[in-house]
Design a protein around this nucleic acid. Structure first.
Lengths: 343, 343
DNA sequence: CTGAAAGCGCTAACAT
DNA sequence: ATGTTAGCGCTTTCAG
């Protein structure tokens, strides 16, 4: 069932069918109707690949993501999808690339299938993109250390968020002994959050010894970090985990051991995943509007598609974060939630 | 940058380039290497649309989903994606269709872009599929009332899960006054869960008056249902919400009013979303392995792609559910979680 | 207003 | 082993 069948059945040329169905004009209202009727009767549906081969438009955007685990990525995809739908774009997702080879293959298969890319991948450095990104394919980078005029970059304000959280813990709550459960060494977000912690500690608790435990952004590693602290003999007064899942793991470890949170130890996180509001005590955390991150990325990309030559702002755009005060930090008596801006 | 450029640069025909790059054989190892080198130097990437136009393969499967909200859908996509990746397939998602028109358009644009479809949509009845599904496109239906040899269908055992939960509440916990916070009328899952509740009530608490409140599968509607119960003057001994978000909303309403859960009122849900384990009291619920649902759907579809003429089993496949006993039902003292099979 | 014809970039016969 | 050629299904000049 191709355009030819419709043409034959309607007694016209394929060109007329194309014109009629695309509303390009150049056909009588009369013949257009006849063609439409025939197409409907034959249940003709145009072939996307064939069409985009010549129009050079797929109305699809590709998303290269490192992993699909966790609420972060589902929220991100939702944000992208929401904005994409609003613009009549579809979404081709490719996630969880074990290695560079894998990510490269995924990126290459996008050629001819998408009009643009949104890339969030730790492995996507400059040379990787240079070799695997189809030439001149509009692309927006997420959470990338890359800078430069080649691609627009959207980042989360990890540093600012971590800084604000430590300030909250040190200044508003008055804690001095604040430990960090950091994320993986090779993770860009983790690095920036750690940096924010260090900077804020130096600023608000000068001279205090830093205490950093290494985690993997997983609940289990947070749990282990909690156990390590207790095993060490002296608990810190507050624990700032570099993401919510680790904060929750830590919380559970402390709770199991009978340590009061926030009475004896305050625990806070980063991300504000949905669970954060529901756990007891409700988690004080740094809110990142992940959906907005996805949405912004797509809007940026769409702008690029509309005006390909548009200059890319030299500075990376940064998505603000702010501290959401709940119960786990001990700053207030359990009850309502208040919010305040970071920085 | 097309295959022609590579051919010219390597001093061969396009056919040789195609053969070399696809490893189809029929080229000397020597020329193959030369071609590969040139392709790499020119950073040539094959054009997907052009290729699939002739091979009639896209190595992509489409997913038509009603909405991207909530953990249900992110888990589902994850399951599909996991299995897809294992088979070298990509994923074209299309979600959140406001109306039938919208869903129809989404489905039609899939033609020529995907090798098969996974459809989970309340609006996808037989005639909808007949008119909008590209002819003979392998398709698997999820959670659909449709039966028949046309498409394989995968369903959640909503009836069995609800039945098992009511049995747990009535038989194991000994409650008689069990209310249901039902889902939307027009939702297939909601209907089946309600049916399971009715059947189990008739079986285990014969003669008891049924109490059914209507919800929308949202936390807010669960909260409202909780308020309604309290306003009515007499609380039921147990509340079975047709999904976890409503159970959580109900839980919060009761908690705010100072009603003890599970001491005064037991609350249970359906789905076992991640939050269920973390809320206090931990939610007793019906576990649905959503990731497995997605995975199974894709495996089924992949089988269809490999053997298009394979007979579709006449009966719909059903994904089992089972009750996960936690704290909110009062069946046990807080602590470990136990699990038992449904039916 | 309509049709014929030329490709889009690629693969797969069919020649050589 | 390599090249030539005919399309895949569609849009878009260019004629008429």
């Amino acid at each position: 069932m191709t355009i030819k069948d419709v043409a034959r059945e309607a007694g016209v040329s394929v060109a007329s069918v194309s014109r009629a169905l695309n509303g390009t004009g150049g056909v009588t209202a009369e013949t257009e109707k006849r063609i439409r009727d025939v197409a409907a009767r034959l249940r003709y549906i145009p072939h996307g690949a064939a069409r985009s081969l010549i129009t050079r438009r797929t109305h699809t955007i590709g998303a290269l993501l490192p992993d699909m685990y966790g609420e972060f990525f589902s929220e991100l995809i939702r944000g992208i999808d929401l904005a994409a739908r609003a613009r009549g774009l579809h979404l081709l997702v490719s996630s969880a690339h074990d290695g560079v080879e894998d990510a490269a293959a995924a990126l290459r298969t996008m050629r001819g299938r998408v009009d643009g890319m949104i890339i969030l991948s730790p492995r996507a450095d400059a040379s990787f993109l240079h070799t695997n990104l189809p030439e001149s394919l509009p692309t927006v980078l997420l959470n990338s250390p890359l800078r430069g005029p080649r691609y627009p970059v959207l980042n989360i304000d990890n540093h600012g968020g971590a800084h604000a959280m430590v300030r909250h813990l040190a200044v508003e709550c008055g804690y001095r002994d604040i430990a960090l459960v950091a994320g993986p060494h090779d993770n860009y977000d983790a690095q920036q959050r750690e940096e924010g912690y260090r900077a804020a500690m130096a600023e608000f608790v000068p001279g205090a010894a830093l205490r950093i435990l290494r985690g993997e952004f997983t609940e289990e590693s947070g749990y282990r970090a909690g156990c390590e602290m207790m095993a060490s003999g002296k608990l810190p007064r507050a624990v700032f985990a570099a993401n919510d899942m680790m904060a929750i793991g830590c919380l559970l470890a402390l709770r199991e051991a009978g340590v009061e949170v926030p009475g004896s130890v305050a625990v806070t996180g980063f991300d504000d995943i949905p669970i954060a509001r529901y756990i007891t005590p409700a988690l004080t955390t740094v809110q990142v509007r992940i959906v907005d991150l996805g949405r912004s990325a797509l809007e940026r990309l769409a702008a690029l598609l509309d005006a390909p030559d548009q200059a890319t702002p030299p500075e990376a755009d940064t998505l603000g974060c702010h501290v959401v005060v709940r119960d786990s930090c001990g700053a207030r008596s359990p009850g309502k939630t208040s919010t305040k801006k970071a920085r």
